[in-house]
Design a protein around this nucleic acid. Structure first.
Lengths: 236, 236
DNA sequence: TCAATACATTTTACAATCAAAATCATAAAA
DNA sequence: TTTTATGATTTTGATTGTAAAATGTATTGA
């Protein structure tokens, strides 16, 4: 046992570019985008000063963020965090429904009995929490449940792609939630989904998952258009 | 009618960054990635010389390409075009199936009768071509058909996400195709899909689309594992 | 007082340079 | 002859600087 064994492989895959990407990504998700008075502007020079690095790695990180739709970079104007329109949000939920519906279908084949038992246990625990805890907490657990199903599909890309969607959901949560009746309904839905998975009924499982998520879609659609304090016409 | 009407808004949204992104993207898609002796290395200095620009816009373009999985950039090693493993390809097709299946479902509601008539006309024309033309040509038309359905869903994000997948399909086509019996079967499938759409049967349409695409999935799965001249174990 | 033009400031897009790390080759020692 | 170590070369990562474009301001003229 020489000293070299103690020395970790030294994470030299670290780059400022990747680091700033993670930092900015997290920062954007944490800020409340939909508050009207929030400053959407990202000044690369200010960021460079705050992170105490040069502007180049920041530019590369911003390019990546723009690629997955978190920020919008307008040539010779600057980069702004992209405030999603209602239409975009609804479309994302549709895609989410499509992906998870397929995941549920696959899960009826791929998931072991133990997996499903673990899922049920997980859902039970969270449903208990949901009754007492606040909405915010519930929503977090809700996402976890769906990610669980995605994992059970055995299709890693499916989960990865859904994660890219869930990232955007984080900011939306703050606006979407507020009705407590949806919590209990959601818990019931989850149980029905689990039952369908356990009975290995691919069509039923995929149907229930799809309809569950599409209910969220319709809920947001009606709620937000009713309150319509959102700028849907903010396109270019 | 003054002269200012003649003057176009002057496309000053042009940036070297975006341009090189398009150029590199196209170049990668055109090269035959899966030929073993092809050079996967992208030297940013060489690229800078060839395009007669500096390295900075190239680096930003490469960062974007890495983000949508076309290239892989290894810190302090360089950037390489990403040769997809069989597993990754199969998973992409699963996602494709999920997305288009949902699109078909939505299309049964959103698409007008005229839309469906146009789709049928489009498919008929292409099926005729497919009989005589070579496989490559058919495959192009095949993708078009599927994109048509995605469009009919009215969900733009659905189409956009599928496009991101189809990009990867381009390179795969060269390997996947070769059996002419799949062409005729595919044409029959398309007709059945159109019939389901025309009868406004959401469940049936989505089912037929899903099964059609998953047949491609299974086909590639069996064919490629049989020939297994692919490095599935190429995961770090 | 209002409008238009010229000027100044700010900020992005790009380039050129510097520094560090990895690979390759050569030479020396066992 | 083989293996190891040291140096040279190559290539990426990051900093800094420069130029162009857009925005804001002020001044001048009607």
């Amino acid at each position: 046992m020489s000293i070299s064994d103690k020395l970790s492989p030294v994470a030299m895959n670290f780059t400022l570019k990747d680091h700033t990407y993670d930092v900015l990504r997290k920062a954007i998700l944490e800020m409340n985008i939909y508050q009207p008075e929030t400053d959407l502007r990202l000044d690369e020079r200010t960021l460079a000063e705050n992170l105490a690095i040069s502007r180049t790695p920041i530019r590369e990180a911003l390019a990546r963020l723009a690629q997955d739709g978190l920020v919008e970079i307008i040539p010779r104007k600057g980069v702004f965090v992209h405030r999603k329109s209602l239409e975009e949000i609804l479309e994302m939920i549709v895609i989410w429904a499509a992906l998870e519906s397929m995941a549920a279908r696959l899960a009826t084949e791929k998931a072991s009995d133990d997996d499903l038992r673990a899922l049920r246990k997980f859902a039970m625990k969270n449903s208990m929490d949901a009754m007492s805890a606040e909405i915010e907490e519930y929503s977090e657990a809700n996402i976890k449940f769906h990610q669980y199903i995605l994992d059970l599909s055995g299709c890693k890309a499916l989960g990865k792609m859904a994660d890219g969607l869930f990232v955007h959901m984080h900011a939306i949560r703050r606006r979407a939630m507020g009705e407590s009746d949806r919590v209990t309904k959601s818990v019931a839905d989850h149980m029905e989904i689990i039952e369908a998975l356990e009975s290995r009924d691919a069509d039923l499982a995929s149907k229930r998952v799809r309809e569950h998520t599409m209910r969220l879609h319709d809920h947001i659609h009606t709620t937000w258009t009713r309150l319509d304090n959102i700028d849907s016409e903010k396109t270019i």
